[in-house]
Computed example of a mutant assay.
Amino acid sequence: MDLESAGDRDYAGAVAVKGDGFGQSAALATSIPSLRFDTRDLPVEHQFEAWRAFHASVLDATLSPEARQGFVFEQKVWNLGSLAFTSARMPGRPVPRQWRHIRKDPLDHWCLVLPESAMHAAQAAGAPPRQVHIRSLGRPYEGAAADSSVSTVFIPRDLLRPIAGVLDAHPGTLEPTGMGGLLADFLISFERRLSTVSADEMPSYVEAMRAMLSACLAPTSDRVAEAQGQIAATMLERVRQLVHQELYCPELGPDMICRRLGLSRSRLYVLFEPLHGVARYIQRQRLLAAHKELSDPAMARSIGQIAERLCFSDSATFSRAFRNEFGCSPSDVRATAAGGTMPTPARLMLPMMNQTAHLGEILQHLQI
């Protein structure tokens, strides 16, 4: 197919473009919907053209020879009124892509791009440092990538007008350490929570994003102070991720956390004060992991083996802590699971909203 005519076909209308709330309970029934774009049900020879058509008002993409073998692409788009957040998964290295920005008023938005965001969120072993890139849709730009996932936040120029000069002069890539690394963690944490955001909460989420971007991209004492809430929440999330990553390590504790994350002990204790302390948090996560294993009839480890694996000094200490936490013994949970009576969390299936839109349409309607 001729590349220039690819955008003229209404692939977006033929693709699965729908909204969903991704809710987990009735309390989340009012969460803001996301637009989902998915090419997997299209013939392989049309998948790349469909992706290109969906983005045609924002960028122009080049068809690679590998894309003729298929381009399975899924993207979710959340419209928060004053900004848009997208999360995409794609084939990755087998199918590289090239693109260039299309200069089209009024799309002079900035976009912050975090490649391989899903891999980083999972804390894959050997993953390179998180690195955020900043671009302007109002300026010429050509790029190429072979990422398997990417998260992007689109920000209207007026939302960050006070630091516009700084952003216009930005080299385009943030260092993966310091405030740049903190911003990468914040974007991942922000995305995780989007499925639970209600319409009433959107302004506060937008304000949190504005404050964090200002503090990380153009730091001053005032801007950093304004973003302290978001910075503390992001640092807390960093610690939580490390705890889950090292849950079975006997050395896990305040010293390891401070050393690995560059935190002072006083800062760590302040962060975990609302959670009754970092040691209490670590113990609770280990007990939750034990409860999950005991609830699985297929798991064959003894209670003593589970206790040792989760770094408890002995089975008696483990059982006592377990009973204090859950009001029952480890053997009670195992017996109940063996009887097949463990409850399964109910999932609310929200109705799909049939709607078709292009990414450019959403970006054009972002308002301050």
Rank of each mutant, 00 (worst) to 15 (best):
H109I: 02
C111V: 12
C111H: 13
P115G: 05
P115E: 05
E116G: 08
S117T: 07
A118V: 14
A118R: 14
H120G: 04
A122E: 15
A122P: 03
A122S: 15
A125H: 13
G126Y: 06
G126F: 04
P128D: 08
P129W: 05
R130M: 15
Q131H: 09
Q131D: 05
R135I: 07
S136R: 14
L137T: 02
L137G: 03
L137Q: 04
R139Q: 14
P140R: 12
E142L: 14
G143C: 08
A145I: 05
A146S: 15
D147I: 04
D147G: 04
S149W: 06
V150Q: 06
V150T: 08
V150E: 09
V150K: 03
S151M: 10
S151Q: 12
S151H: 13
S151I: 05
V153R: 00
V153H: 00
F154I: 01
F154W: 12
I155C: 04
P156Q: 04
R157A: 10
D158N: 13
L159I: 08
L160Q: 05
R161P: 01
R161W: 12
P162F: 07
A164N: 09
A164K: 10
G165S: 13
V166R: 11
V166Q: 10
P171L: 07
P171V: 09
G172C: 11
T173E: 13
L174E: 03
L174C: 11
E175Q: 14
P176L: 08
G178K: 05
G181Y: 05
L183K: 01
L183E: 00
L183C: 02
A184S: 14
A184T: 03
D185A: 15
L187N: 00
L187K: 02
L187P: 00
I188Y: 02
S189H: 14
E191H: 13
E191T: 14
R192P: 00
S195R: 14
T196N: 05
S198G: 12
A199N: 10
S204N: 15
V206P: 01
V206H: 04
E207N: 09
A208I: 02
A208D: 12
M209R: 02
R210V: 06
A211R: 15
M212H: 06
A215D: 02
L217R: 03
L217H: 03
T220P: 03
T220F: 05
A227R: 03
A227N: 04
Q228D: 14
Q230H: 10
A232I: 12
E237A: 13
R238I: 04
Y248M: 15
P250D: 02
L252I: 10
L252P: 00
G253C: 08
